[in-house]
């Protein structure tokens, strides 16, 4: 069993952090995992994206030609990647800044207003963690506890309160998805 996920958005939206945090938590839960960032010549602007593969066996290619999940934080990412998503795959989109909807009819779509939720929480920088909450609730790739512990490890204890707001953000995204 192998699951491949593409995260994509503007540079600065914390898209690569979404990928690394998923990869860490998958590792900590005992899975095989690969994380592959897209890298370019430019340092700022443009889109950032990364691919995470999680499996209970050795992972051959870290590239996802047909990802099971696509998480997009901006419109260009939706247009770039929506055609790649596997049939019966799932797209999570940040509906706060993406007004368009996927043209695909064979995939499930979850529109998460990450921006608004983040604003309600008083910290617009946690939109990515909110999305992770929604994604992990729906996909169940890793346990919420494992994810939060891994997130804390990779964020370090640089600032008090970071862990707290991340927990809140994750919970908000998690609760946004109804069973």
């Amino acid at each position: 069993m192998i699951t491949k996920v593409i995260f994509s958005g503007f540079g600065g939206q914390g898209v690569l952090m979404m990928g690394t945090s998923l990869a860490h938590s998958a590792m900590n839960q005992g899975f095989h995992v690969t994380y592959l960032p897209a890298y370019g010549a430019e340092m700022r602007g443009g889109t950032a994206n990364c691919t995470v593969a999680v499996a209970d066996e050795e992972i051959a290619s870290p590239v996802a030609s047909e990802p099971d999940y696509l998480i997009v934080m901006n419109s260009p990412s939706l247009f770039s990647f929506q055609t790649k998503v596997s049939a019966r795959g799932t797209i999570f989109l940040n509906s706060s800044i993406i007004s368009e909807r996927p043209s695909r009819r064979d995939v499930a779509v979850y529109a998460v207003p990450c921006g608004e939720i983040a604003q309600d929480l008083g910290n617009t920088r946690v939109a990515n963690v909110i999305m992770m909450g929604a994604f992990i609730k729906k996909s169940g790739i890793v346990k919420a506890d494992t994810y939060l512990k891994s997130l804390e490890t990779i964020m370090g204890s640089r600032k008090k309160g970071v862990a707290e707001i991340n927990r809140k953000a994750f919970a908000a995204g998690f609760d946004f998805i109804k069973d």
Binding site: T20, M27, H32, V33, T34, Y35, L36, P62, V63
Partner: peptide
Amino acid sequence: GMMGQMMEP
């Protein structure tokens, strides 16, 4: 480049 950029445990 892929080996250089990729993360694995």
